[in-house]
Design a binder for these strands. Sequence first.
DNA 1: GTTAGCAATCGTCATACTTGACTGCTAAAG
DNA 2: CTTTAGCAGTCAAGTATGACGATTGCTAAC
Lengths: 365, 365
Amino acid sequence: MTIANRQKSRVLKEVGMQTKLSERKQKILKLLVARYISTAQPISSSDVKNDYDEDISSATIRSELASLEELGYLIQPHVSAGRIPSNKAYRMYVESLPAQTKGNELSVADIRSYFERKMGEVEDIIRTTAQVISDITNYTSVIVVKKMSEVVVKSIKLVDIGAESALVIIITNAGIIKDNIIDLPKDMGGGYLDTASKILNDLFADKSIDEIRKTKDSIENELKEYKSLLNDIIELIENYSDGKHDKVFVEGRAKLLDYPEYNQIDKVKSVLAQIDKKDELGDMITCNEGFEFSVKIGKDEDGIDNCSIVSARYKIDGKQEVHAGVIGPERMNYTKVFNVLSHIDDAIKAIIDKKEDCNDKEEDK
Amino acid sequence: MTIANRQKSRVLKEVGMQTKLSERKQKILKLLVARYISTAQPISSSDVKNDYDEDISSATIRSELASLEELGYLIQPHVSAGRIPSNKAYRMYVESLPAQTKGNELSVADIRSYFERKMGEVEDIIRTTAQVISDITNYTSVIVVKKMSEVVVKSIKLVDIGAESALVIIITNAGIIKDNIIDLPKDMGGGYLDTASKILNDLFADKSIDEIRKTKDSIENELKEYKSLLNDIIELIENYSDGKHDKVFVEGRAKLLDYPEYNQIDKVKSVLAQIDKKDELGDMITCNEGFEFSVKIGKDEDGIDNCSIVSARYKIDGKQEVHAGVIGPERMNYTKVFNVLSHIDDAIKAIIDKKEDCNDKEEDK
DNA sequence: GTTAGCAATCGTCATACTTGACTGCTAAAG
DNA sequence: CTTTAGCAGTCAAGTATGACGATTGCTAAC
């Protein structure tokens, strides 16, 4: 009874200061999380005592730990084991981090040296970037290239490729869409493509996809023989805009298996199965509007059970959105990951800029 | 001593008939492999006795098993356990299969029903096909789309996309290459692209890539202002031909974890790590010229340790090569896999033909 | 060449015991 | 009221032990 009362009083006290833990509790909690991140072993009171700079007895720490446990920050696997952080503790830890994030500039050099090798196409760059992130952090990495919605069509070209079909090339402010073939009418005359091309550019040039969608009804007024062609192309642009598939690159899946939390087959299986579903993975790695970084700890909302997902958003040429992130255990090394993701940003930009400065020139016009 | 002699005589006898095992040995071996494929448990002599159609004592089987073990077909995990097949036994088993492969037509219906859903681009078809193979077989599946070497260029188009650059579209008998942007000279005149286009088509139309490679020297005679453009495009065609990257699609990685042979983390890790290396994976899944199927059991040559890789080659439109295969434990259900791979062939063709009949028409011209 | 029977071998499982690592509690000191 | 030291209690993990069952190889008989 006395015990129960005592605990109760402690709880009430803490609930009173809900938002803030006492200085010492915060300090202890951070030490504990940091140590757990590197050891993956339950942390005992004497472990914390050793890490603690001032002299303080393990008994005092024990009572603090007991209190933190009641508050939901710690979990005890069994009664005579140390304690491990809960997801709540990780969140608190991550929130406390940014102030300490700066400083570790070492990885920049590493990243740049990785990129020294000659690379070909943009897709290669992205794949290599994903490999670099995975190698440096030693976690599984994911890069998502978003299909965009706020795109302005600059011009449209039709290229006859024989067999009554044409390749449609749509040049936008964010890049070139060139993956579409449409059928042409069998009885078309000589100047058909040229005329169609003019009509298309008159109708669509310098319009956003939303605007184009609205013109759908007004094409009824156009010449009959181009109606089906125009419809095809509008549909094509719409399909592009709603981004059926973002492009998803995953590298270093097997790295997950380096961590002891995934040494049981059933756990690793559920995680890998979720990573294999690229559509959902794309959503998970996506940072919400307005944030530069996103941290998802554990399952809740749209994360993965037993995992943390840290991701960052990048913009290329002001528009094209790329989200890159890593997947690892909840006790992932957040500091390192933040660092790497920040600097990868610069590295990618440097490369992309060099390759796509033609696009920049176009913007400048 | 007597024992040793006896064993020796047995061995000598078998070595005498190296190429062929006795009827009964073959039968026993096949039964044993088949049973091990479904149970994953060491097979005892009495297990074989139960499967054996004629009446035969377990003691007889024991002596046959002992003999097969000496010949390297069987392995005994420990002295009082049943026996498991060696890679040599799997190879013998697979070679004995084709005669029995026919018959199981069930999967065709399954496959077709899988494909009923609407699909978009060719890449989607392939990805879906990979998922289908993986789902039906319950193994990890890989599809490799080969870049081709014996391609004939039909025509080349240049499309101005602004910013002193052009999109190069190369139409070949095997498809359209449209992923390349080249830089244009800054001081080009009005008709530059048209002229360049004419020169290109005069030089390259209806030539194979090998032939184009040879024209490299002869362009010295052409007008200076087009020289660098021509060189760019030749390089581009060459790069395409030597197939830096085949496109590799992998689906169902997590399925590996369903099998008891991969319930130790270190084993599954090495396998997954190798599957993640897409370049090597492409080579592994590739069937050598002249074979329709390829079976790689275990590590030797270019397989994966503790795995079997079964793959098949397909041709689309007579040229484009696609290799599809599955990766699973050595005791994989070869019969089922052969069946699925055979029928997927038909299913893919049906879909591709429907989507690409424009290409076929072109061939007919 | 085949069969039945038997002793020997070895993995698996359950049990029990020991050890070591923590904790929570209490009572005393600051 | 906080902190500390000491102690008893708890539990996971490791180790030794023995019974059990599965399976084999060998031998002798058919």
